[in-house]
Write a protein that binds this DNA or RNA. Structure first.
Length: 499
RNA sequence: GCGCCUGUAGCUCAGCUGGAUAGAGCAACGGACUUCUAAUCCGUAGGUCGCAGGUUCGAGUCCUGCCAGGCGUACCA
């Protein structure tokens, strides 16, 4: 049967006197358009007022336990913008899942064991010697950044000449721990300025000390997943779909990071999480098959393991690339970027792209307070509405801005109905954003809502000579403000009352 | 070579898990501030959705191949 025909039959069964349906019509190749009566939209505002800060929340997660591990940058240097993207995406995904009824646990895995930390210790140690006036070769594979010298100075301040009185091994060990602790504190501070906090900072060193790494290697050996070749221990990841087998213990006896990661991911699932999410930079994507292999070999369901790969960030200034790179001396840190452009702009920019798209982050654009930089466009809605409320109080003596069914019947303008429809879509936007773990959906929702509001603001006045109309419009505008605030809060962006 | 990601307006990006005439911002052009903040709004112009096939009543969206760019392909992380 032709779609048109089906539509005609369907439409005959729709009651003509239904209060919510003004009219229906058949359009195009068989679409039925329902024209909803304006009054049918009014209850949306009531719901927003009743639920307020929880408007949009749901329980689709049904209390499922989710662990999300993000940032997890090595404590061998300051965070850069790439870490920032992972941090902000991870944090917002965590917030979204929480809003949708998941029981979310945020974790930062600290690589405070292994070779990189030894290199960090050596770097600091050598800089200490230089401070003592000794001529030393500073190897290329040591950390070159200025922060190493700052740490070296701090070591000297704290320990004086102690490091020259002990063996190099002991001195380097001390420097390693000292520097890593200090870097973690710095990293934590920067993340705090972004409004990011973790439930747990999980130490690799502690994992190693607990014996869990050794235990899993032994277990996998017994199960035949790990074998010896060329004096090293290899994990049969290829059998689980990886390109090749991977080393877990090197021929010098040192275990690799992968060995710890096997134990770590097993441990995550042992802790009873229904889902574990890792947020990684795209440059780590080759790591996914081996972690999956480890999970499957552990007898767990690899479907519980999800990776969000954030594509790389190109830092620009006026279109010109700014060099980045941890080992070369100079790079712009995340902290410097936040200082320059502000936390809200940094967060919003990272969230106005799908994490799967590469991102050009231009420092000059990020500072502009124009529509190039939509964070202000959205915040301006909140500030404008606050301003209206202030004026309502100060000059119109309106103190009662509670929801009123009577007042709301005056909301009939097409722009107003359009706005309420938009507000009604907020909950499903959140649900979809959480389901797909795509916080950018919320950012785009807010920009769209902001556009509708600004257009409305320019066309209609909220404070009018008609008290009932004014009361109705205040309810509408307050509803918009609540949703804007809720959305921005979820994205970790402030909702200012004045700009 | 192989693997992952990307390719939509001059630029930066969306496109709600296959539906009507593909959207927004910036840039360009023309308008709107004695009125709740012009960090705003209104209008004009701008597209062979990388290319070629395929599936479907219907494809920017799914499949295959190709092209271009990014990343990865260590007994580094």
């Amino acid at each position: 049967m032709a779609p048109q025909k089906i539509a005609e039959i369907l439409i005959r069964h729709i009651p003509a006197d239904h209060p919510a349906i003004e009219k229906t019509e058949i359009a195009g190749p068989g679409f039925i358009n329902f024209f909803i009566a304006p009054a049918a939209w009014h209850p949306v505002l009531k719901e927003i007022f009743e639920k307020d800060q929880a408007y949009g929340f749901s329980n689709t997660g049904n209390g499922q336990k989710v662990q999300i591990e993000f940032v997890s940058a090595n404590p061998t240097g300051p965070l850069h913008v790439g870490h920032g993207r992972g941090a902000i995406v991870g944090d917002s995904v965590a917030a979204l899942l929480t809003a949708c009824g998941y029981d979310v646990y945020r974790e930062y895995y600290i690589n405070d064991a292994g070779r990189q930390i030894q290199t960090l210790g050596l770097s600091v140690f050598l800089r200490c010697r230089q401070l003592d006036g000794q001529a030393v070769d500073f190897p290329e594979d040591c950390y070159q950044g200025d922060y190493i010298q700052d740490i070296a100075k701090a070591v000297k301040d704290k320990q004086g000449d102690w490091i020259s009185t002990v063996s190099q091994e002991e001195a380097v060990g001390f420097c390693a721990t000292f520097a890593a602790d200090r870097m973690i504190i710095t990293i934590r501070e920067v993340l705090n300025t972004l409004g990011i906090r973790f439930d747990n900072w999980y130490s690799e060193q502690a994992l190693v000390s607990s014996g869990k790494v050794e235990a899993v290697i032994e277990k996998f050996k017994d199960q035949g997943f790990i074998y010896e070749k060329d004096d090293a221990l290899w994990f049969k990841t290829e059998a689980f779909g990886d390109e090749k087998d991977r080393v877990v213990v090197r021929n010098n006896g040192q275990s690799t990071y992968f060995a710890s990661d096997i134990a770590y991911h097993r441990d995550k699932l042992d802790r009873g999480f229904d889902r574990i999410i890792d947020v990684w930079g795209a440059d780590h994507h080759g790591y996914i098959p081996r972690i999956r292999a480890a999970i499957t070999a552990s007898g767990k369901d690899e479907k519980q393991f999800v990776v969000i790969l954030t594509q790389l960030v190109n830092l620009l200034r006026k279109g010109v690339p700014v060099s980045m790179g941890k080992r070369s001396g100079h790079f712009v840190t995340l902290e410097e970027v936040i200082d320059e452009v502000g936390k809200d702009a940094v967060r919003f920019i990272f969230l106005t792209r799908h994490y799967d798209s590469p991102l050009d982050f231009d420092l000059e654009v990020a500072k502009q307070k124009t529509n190039d930089n939509p964070v202000y466009y959205v915040q301006y809605v909140h500030a404008r509405i606050s301003s209206i409320l202030k004026k309502a109080r100060d000059e119109n003596n309106i103190t009662d801005t509670a929801y009123s069914t009577d007042a709301v019947t005056r909301i009939t303008e097409p722009e107003e109905i359009r706005l309420i429809k938009h507000l009604a879509r907020y909950p499903e936007t959140l649900a979809a954003a959480a389901e797909f773990m795509e916080p950018h959906r919320v950012a785009f929702y807010l920009m769209d809502l902001a556009a509708d509001f600004h257009a409305y603001y320019n066309k209609h006045r909220v404070l009018t000579d008609d008290p009932d109309l004014t009361a109705g419009r205040l309810v509408l505008v307050l509803g918009i403000q609540k949703v804007i605030r809720n959305g921005l809060t979820l994205l970790g962006v402030s909702a200012p009352d004045a700009m």
